[in-house]
Amino acid sequence: MSALGPFNRATARLGPVNRRLILLLVALVIVFGLLLGHRLFNAASLRSMAYQLPELGILSLAMMIPLLSGGLDLSIIATADLSALAMAWILTHMVPAHPGFAWVAWQVAAIVAGLVLAAIVGMLNGLIIAYLEVSPILTTLGMMTLIKGISIGLTHGGVLSGFPAPIVFIGNGDLWGVPIVLLIFVALAIPVGIMLTRSPFGQVLNMLGSNEAATRYSGVDTRRALVKVYILSGVLASVAGVVMMARFNSANAAYGESYLLVTILAAVLGGISPSGGFGKVTGLVFALVILQLISTAFNLLNFSQFLTLAIWGATLILVAGVTRLREHFLR
């Protein structure tokens, strides 16, 4: 009996999706390497990639978990902004000017408050989806409008800026040459990956995504699981909010809005089934690296960031098309 359990799936076998992504990645590295050579593969541009990838990366993790459960979370950006604004308000109003105990405590409190607020938003999403049985798209679309509305209402569309040094360091500093934001992304991606493949909750999540009713009949509290899904998604979004806030040294109701649909793109490109039940963090990471590589290379080639956007969309269509053609001809 070969490969038993979900464990070997994550380690021993790469699976067809990841193989295809690695192939694409290698092809891109070769093409861009020939075109750009040292201009792309040097410390500076690798560092800039490492600074840029985590924002989209963490948001994509926040999108991935609801996608696996057969849903979707359109409110992640709004959640990230709302919690960043809450944190920013505490940081700009409560933190004393000089280092000391209160100086540290208020900064920690600010971040905790932001995370808790995001968890509450996520819980509301989850409760509406699980107990009122409203479709996830509509629930989170409404929640997005509502909380973005709250952010705009409270700030009048303005910007909160000027944070203490440690916060700015989170966004722009590094440890032994590795950007803090990348460390944060890795520190989230690994446990999320382990949770999805090895924890009972991760198993339930996949089963739930494929067939909610059968999962419920198997003695799983699927409603509770769904609420957890959206809390997790909210909290992850809030971490992305911290990263964005720290990088820009400011917070606003409309930061990162263009990321929303791109996170879905990244997740689906990474092999996460849009109808739920299947997908791995490793696939998502490969997809993110591919997207980031395209973005950085195009930037070096002096193409506009909008061409990057177009190519990102085209990549998904292309990968889907190749998959479809293979299915067609292998039959």
């Binding site: 798209i137 649909l261 879905i264 849009p274 909008f306 956007l309 177009a310 969309g313 998904l316």
Partner: peptide, 15 residues
């Protein structure tokens, strides 16, 4: 939804 999200990016990016 996935196809048209991708195409939104393609159309808008190219424009």
């Amino acid at each position: 939804i996935i196809v048209t999200i991708a195409m939104l990016n393609v159309y808008y990016g190219l424009l």
